[in-house]
Lab assay of single mutants.
Amino acid sequence: MATGGRRGAAAAPLLVAVAALLLGAAGHLYPGEVCPGMDIRNNLTRLHELENCSVIEGHLQILLMFKTRPEDFRDLSFPKLIMITDYLLLFRVYGLESLKDLFPNLTVIRGSRLFFNYALVIFEMVHLKELGLYNLMNITRGSVRIEKNNELCYLATIDWSRILDSVEDNYIVLNKDDNEECGDICPGTAKGKTNCPATVINGQFVERCWTHSHCQKVCPTICKSHGCTAEGLCCHSECLGNCSQPDDPTKCVACRNFYLDGRCVETCPPPYYHFQDWRCVNFSFCQDLHHKCKNSRRQGCHQYVIHNNKCIPECPSGYTMNSSNLLCTPCLGPCPKVCHLLEGEKTIDSVTSAQELRGCTVINGSLIINIRGGNNLAAELEANLGLIEEISGYLKIRRSYALVSLSFFRKLRLIRGETLEIGNYSFYALDNQNLRQLWDWSKHNLTITQGKLFFHYNPKLCLSEIHKMEEVSGTKGRQERNDIALKTNGDQASCENELLKFSYIRTSFDKI
């Protein structure tokens, strides 16, 4: 039985969820670079991206490699990797027998973001014989899940209580170790020597080791999670996991709180800001991140802002960003909400898709409305799209047979046209069989910064309504002859009103 693990408890099935942008060198404390989270699957090609990484700022997932063999891993080693800020997950990587050479110096898994409450997941690794993470000293947050690894031993010899604050939620089941077939031998045991430290858990006094050649490092209890030197002297209180010299914040392997210019500090002093819960960055760093993602459509890219001495992905609820200094300031009234469309555009074809934009005031991208039916549609669209004030790209209304009016965009005031449909149009209306009105132009103002209007096959939309939009939106004169079809717009509506004058002759039985 794995020490510190839980057996036999019912657990939810383990679901495996399925960018080499360097964020800056980590400095003297770390020998390499800070790398983003990685999802490495199918083959070993991307694994080489770990070569210079000291910190993975995010998670590391290595999974679904069915053609790899043990010899493929023999020359692979990433000794610079010290810390993973989120979680480490391995799933069905064939041929991998140990992690001792792959990650010989991995010391800390912070667990800032977890995989279903777990910071370390080893699942269905069919050839893994031992973990071998002999320098792993601290899992700051989260638990361990090690399950269905039929060859995995050296679990009962690990004292997880020396690595985690609590072992109650560890789930370590259905491994070879369960069948008591392992016969784990710690260093020196074969020669009758006791080389590794022994600890007591559940009444068992057991030597602690990761492999037959690597003991588990056990520091004096007084050192807590700070770690200790090879001689057993406690590291500085700002260290986490390990250090090369005692009581020196510049000799830590990793930091308990924050890293700044080669030393570990309790908090980031001005003019620095907390970033990702582990390091200090200056304003320029946060500003660069903001600008890199301002026009990016890459998933996970955030326009970072500053709030409460932190550089964070977005302002919290009730705050909006001051564009001059990136500071989050309290909103006066309802907060603006910028919604970034991942692929640059979004099609609204149902109430469900409209709900995804609920509360958005600025759309960074283009909207395509293609709704053919739905219950209580006008009210639903207004509830979900009615706060949109600005669209950076274009607005396209296409084959939306259920629409009679666009009044559900009740606050839309600006279409920038930074991206144009077919390279020309910022407003595009095609084949809307029941569209009769755009907006009530006596109450609604709309500016279209650039781009043209396109109207074709809107049989109940009168040309007068379209011409009014040209005047109000500032697009009059931009359109070419064929942009607004004269014969297919309003051709099934009563669009022309003329005053009919009647004269009559009164007659009676005795007068003409």
Rank of each mutant, 00 (worst) to 15 (best):
Pro330Leu: 08
Gly262Pro: 02
Ser317Asp: 07
Asp72Thr: 11
Asn195Thr: 11
Leu64Arg: 06
Gly241His: 04
Leu106Tyr: 00
Phe66Ile: 15
Leu50Asn: 01
Phe73Ala: 12
Gln299Pro: 12
Tyr319Leu: 03
Asn175Ser: 11
Arg69Glu: 09
Lys224His: 06
Ala190Met: 04
Pro270Glu: 08
Phe91Val: 07
Lys193Gln: 15
Leu136His: 01
Gly32Asp: 14
Asp177His: 15
Gly227Trp: 08
Lys67Asp: 08
Pro313Lys: 07
His302Leu: 04
His236Ile: 01
Thr157Asn: 12
Cys255Tyr: 01
Tyr304Gly: 03
Gly188Arg: 05
Asn149Lys: 00
Leu289Arg: 12
Met38Gln: 14
Ile146Tyr: 02
Phe258Gln: 12
Pro271Leu: 06
Trp278Tyr: 04
Gly58Gln: 00
Trp278Glu: 03
Val108Phe: 02
Cys235Ser: 00
Pro336Met: 06
Asp177Trp: 10
Asn242Val: 11
Asp72Ser: 07
Pro249Glu: 03
Glu130Trp: 08
Phe116Leu: 12
Asn195Gln: 09
Pro269Leu: 08
Thr211Ser: 09
Thr250Arg: 03
Tyr319His: 09
Pro79Lys: 03
Pro36Leu: 08
Leu120Cys: 05
Phe115Leu: 11
Asn242Asp: 08
Ser98Gln: 02
Cys223Leu: 02
Lys67Tyr: 05
Ile222Ser: 11
Glu231Lys: 05
Tyr304Ala: 03
Asn242Arg: 10
His307Leu: 05
Arg41Met: 05
Gly188Leu: 12
Phe78Thr: 01
Glu33Asn: 06
Gln299Phe: 06
Ser77Leu: 09
Ser244Trp: 10
Asn195Ile: 10
Leu102Tyr: 01
Met38Pro: 01
Thr140Ser: 09
Thr320Pro: 02
Asn117Pro: 04
Val253Leu: 15
Cys215Ile: 10
Gly318Trp: 10
Cys209Arg: 08
Cys293Ala: 04
Ser143Leu: 09
Leu29Ile: 01
Gly333Ile: 03
Thr329Asn: 09
Cys315Leu: 04
Cys209Tyr: 02
Cys268Thr: 00
Ile306Ala: 04
Phe283Trp: 06
Asp178Ile: 09
Asn138Ala: 09
Arg92Gln: 07
Cys186Gly: 11
Lys224Trp: 03
His48Tyr: 05
Val34Ala: 13
Leu152Gln: 07
His302Ser: 11
Cys255Glu: 00
Ile40Thr: 04
Met38Cys: 02
Arg141Lys: 09
Pro246Thr: 02
Leu174Ile: 13
Pro79Met: 03
Val121Pro: 00
Ile185Ser: 05
Glu238His: 11
Asp169Val: 10
Cys219Thr: 02
His290Ser: 07
Asn322Met: 03
Ser77His: 03
Leu64Asp: 15
Ile139Arg: 01
Arg145Tyr: 11
Asn105Met: 04
Ile84Lys: 00
Trp160Pro: 01
Asn105Gly: 09
His214Phe: 14
Asn179Phe: 06
Glu130Tyr: 13
Leu99Asp: 00
Ser324Asp: 15
Cys315Thr: 03
Gly227Ser: 13
Asp184Ser: 11
Gly111Pro: 00
Gly241Thr: 11
Ile158Phe: 07
Lys176Thr: 15
Cys328Tyr: 04
Asn309Ile: 02
Ile172Phe: 04
Thr250Leu: 10
Thr229Val: 06
Lys310Cys: 06
Arg69Ile: 11
Val108Pro: 00
Gly188Gln: 10
Glu147Ile: 15
Leu88Trp: 00
Lys129Cys: 08
Cys234Met: 04
Asp165Thr: 08
Cys234Gly: 01
Ile84Gly: 00
Ser213Pro: 12
Tyr272His: 04
Gln276Arg: 08
Gln287His: 13
Leu81Gly: 00
Met125Leu: 03
Ser213His: 08
Asp86His: 15
Lys129Ser: 09
Glu238Lys: 03
Ser225Asp: 05
Leu128Asn: 01
His290Glu: 02
Phe103Gly: 00
Ser161Gln: 13
His236Val: 02
Gly37Cys: 02
Lys100Cys: 10
Pro330Trp: 05
Ile185His: 05
Asp159Ser: 10
Gly318Glu: 06
Pro36Lys: 09
Asp184Thr: 04
Ser317Leu: 08
Ser237Lys: 05
Cys328Asn: 02
Gln287Asn: 08
Gly142Thr: 00
Leu29Val: 06
Gly32Gln: 15
Ile185Asn: 13
Pro249Asn: 13
Thr199Asn: 11
Asn195Asp: 07
Leu99Arg: 00
Gly192Pro: 05
Leu289Val: 10
Gln303His: 10
Leu289Glu: 10
Val108Leu: 09
Thr194Ser: 11
Ile40Met: 10
Lys67Pro: 07
Leu29Ser: 07
Thr199Cys: 11
Trp160Leu: 05
Asn295Leu: 12
Thr189Phe: 12
Pro104Phe: 01
Leu106His: 02
Leu152Met: 15
Thr45Trp: 14
Thr194Arg: 08
Trp210Ser: 08
Ser161Thr: 13
Ile172Gly: 13
Glu33Ser: 14
Glu124Arg: 07
Ala119Glu: 00
Gln276His: 02
Arg256Gly: 03
Gly300Arg: 10
Val218Gly: 10
Asp177Val: 05
Ile56His: 00
Ser296Thr: 14
Phe91His: 06
Val126Ala: 15
Val200Gln: 11
Asn325Ser: 15
Gly232His: 06
